[in-house]
Design a protein around this nucleic acid. Structure first.
Length: 571
RNA sequence: GCGGCUGUAGCUCAGCGGAUUAGAGCAUCGGUCUUCGGAACCGAGGGUCGGGGGUUCGAAUCCCUCCAGCCGCACCA
């Protein structure tokens, strides 16, 4: 089923097209009408006629019989107001639709989403929060519209630090090292290794030798390395569970997975004539990238010491995703500082023919999480903050808030609810502002149960669910929608917007649009049941109101699920 | 130096190919309803949309320029 928006857009395009082939209207929701269509001014110019005349002609020719009323509103635009019957029909259709009007993409597209990407034997910190939460929301939404999602957790499991980490593991003894890693004390482990490396020349030498052994495939070294990887991945899984994120160990495809493909990347670039030697390194110079001296900037594929840089790994991963996974879309949920690097990787991949124009490839960049001082979030001692400790603190505070509000629950149930609320608070705060901006991590603000927060949305849902529970078993399918009260009509318009919001959110890879929509919907809901008592009403009016409540509850729940946020029945 | 991102109400932020009076949340003030869960609703005050130019009938939005903050600019990923 096409959304009301799509239907209007199509009819309008027909009308514009009749006046001037190829003319394209802009349609958007408006405060002054249900929708506003712009573009008559441009059309008038192209035709050499007056804007008003053209607008009148649009009104006369657009075929919205039985759908909407169109009227001239200003020099370059027209207002569109949906007919009550049409609205009512639409709502009735939604009642029978689990997806609330959301169309399934056919045929499904394969969307590869690269997100989270923590480092082995290194603590997850708030920087990983953003990639993980944003990536997971996009993954959930892509699945919701019927696309096939391949999550790739590009874990940092290779490179020179592993010489040092393996030697440290041996110094501690395997059992103790595993014990340290398995309780999630990755900071202590990593810093222990770092300290030994900085202090002890002998350790440094052993580390260097160990890197060589690792890279040459020495069996015992590989075994030790695997311990580090497995312990870390197990720990990451615990964090993902605590965050309620859909990533699994199967999604972990670390940097090392591409080792065997790196030679091929270099050889193929060479064969394509793209490879240039510069200062002993093998480079590609994609056009348009300049260094600080105004000279072309290289993407270093192979270093002077014959080692491969991360550009080679990224290129190998990209090839794999297009050639073997059959990606139609590649999304890289990676921090904003990597813009130039990724732009260069994409440019080289396009040049090499590894990334066809038909494949959408996007760096889903995001800004930093800041502390109250508006600088990068750090502990008092200057270390980065452990992600789990932030989550644990959020849960404690949510629990305290529930107790304070007199939550009538067993302890275990209350603790579980607190975890739901805490996740909602943290995730919503992360998702609700435009990705590329930095934001301040402030638990007080996030956990407020009023205003623009995750818990508020959960509350709105729980409250409307409570009304529906009290109403008992009712057959809503027979509801009809008169929408006599303005607040009911506003709510209905909000419900109809759902599919378009999802589409727009995915198009821009911008979950904050969905956040804004859900908040707006919750506000329309409040206004509605303030003005329209549900359970006190009788007959068809009661049925209509119950149906609106039901649709809103389902939209909130489904929308929150797309953000990775649970919608509890009670709270 | 070059490039990128950010700059909108006291605070936190929306504003998605230009369009009617620039919106929301928090905070402040006032009001409503003998509360279908008040974690409510309605309203008011509060804005040189960083500054300045330009394009346009019309600019927070497009172009140029300047200012401020952050980030990146060859072998660590």
């Amino acid at each position: 089923m096409a959304s009301a928006y799509e239907l209007l857009a199509e009819r309008l395009r027909d009308s514009f097209d009749r006046l001037a082939p190829g003319a394209d209207p802009v349609l958007r929701p408006s405060e002054h009408a249900d929708f506003q269509a712009n573009g008559a001014m441009a059309l008038a110019k192209a035709l050499g006629r007056s804007a008003r005349e053209v607008a009148l002609e649009i009104v006369a020719t657009v075929d919205l019989e039985g759908v909407a009323r169109v009227e001239v509103a200003g020099p370059g635009f027209v207002n569109i107001t949906l007919d009550a019957d049409f609205l009512s029909q639409r709502l009735s259709a939604l009642l029978l639709d689990d997806r609330l009007g959301l169309a399934v993409v056919t045929p499904p597209r394969t969307v590869v989403i690269d997100y989270s990407a923590p480092n082995v034997a290194k603590e997850m910190h708030v920087g990983h929060l953003r990639s993980t939460v944003i990536g997971d929301s996009l993954a959930r939404l892509e699945r919701l519209v019927g696309n096939r999602v391949v999550a790739r957790n590009h874990v940092g499991d290779w490179g020179t630090p592993f010489g040092m980490l393996i030697e440290h593991l041996l110094d501690l003894g395997e059992d103790r090292a595993i014990a340290e890693l398995s309780i999630g004390d990755l900071n202590a482990f990593y810093q222990g290794a770092r300290a030994a490396f900085d202090a002890d020349e002998g350790f440094r030498e052993r580390s260097r030798a160990r890197v060589v052994a690792l890279q040459s495939g020495d069996a015992e070294t590989r075994r030790l390395w695997r311990i580090l990887v497995e312990q870390s991945v197990a720990y990451f899984s615990e964090v993902y569970a605590k965050l309620d994120v859909t990533l699994t160990p199967e999604d972990v495809v670390g940097e090392s997975s591409y080792n065997d493909a790196l030679e091929g990347v270099v050889a193929d670039l060479e064969a394509l004539g793209l490879l240039v030697e510069s200062d002993g390194a093998q480079c590609v110079f994609p056009p348009g990238f300049i260094n600080r001296d105004g000279e072309p900037l290289p993407l270093i594929v192979r270093k002077r010491d014959e080692g491969f840089g991360y550009a080679a790994t990224d290129l190998a991963a990209l090839r794999d995703r297009v050639e073997h996974l059959g990606a139609d879309e590649l999304l890289y949920v990676v921090g904003a500082p990597q813009v130039q690097h990724l732009a260069m990787v994409f440019a080289v991949a396009r040049e090499a023919g590894w990334l066809p124009d038909s494949v959408r490839c996007e760096h889903v960049a995001f800004g930093n999480v800041l502390g109250p001082d508006r600088k990068m979030l750090k502990t008092r001692s200057g270390e980065s903050v452990k992600l789990v400790s932030l989550l644990d603190e959020a849960i404690e505070r949510a629990d305290a808030a529930l107790i304070e509000r007199g939550a009538d629950l067993e302890t275990a149930a209350r603790r579980e609810l607190a975890a739901h609320v805490a996740r909602a608070a943290v995730k919503y705060a992360d998702l609700a502002t435009e990705r590329v901006r930095d934001y301040v991590f402030d638990l007080d603000r996030m956990l407020a149960f009023e205003g623009d927060t995750g818990p508020y949305l959960q509350y709105a849902h729980a409250r409307v669910r409570s009304i529906l529970r009290r109403a008992g078993e009712v057959d809503l399918a027979t509801a009809t929608f008169a929408l006599e009260d303005l607040s009911a009509r506003d709510l209905a318009m909000g419900l109809l917007a759902w599919p378009d919001v999802v589409a727009s959110t995915l198009e821009a890879a911008a979950p904050h649009r969905l956040c804004a929509y859900l908040l707006d919907l919750a506000q329309r809901l409040s206004a509605f049941y303030d003005a329209c008592p549900v359970l006190k009403a009788q007959g068809p009016v009661r049925l209509e109101r119950l149906a609106l409540c039901d649709l809103t509850a389902r939209t909130l729940r489904l929308g929150l699920s797309g953000l990775g946020i649970e919608a509890p029945e009670r709270m």
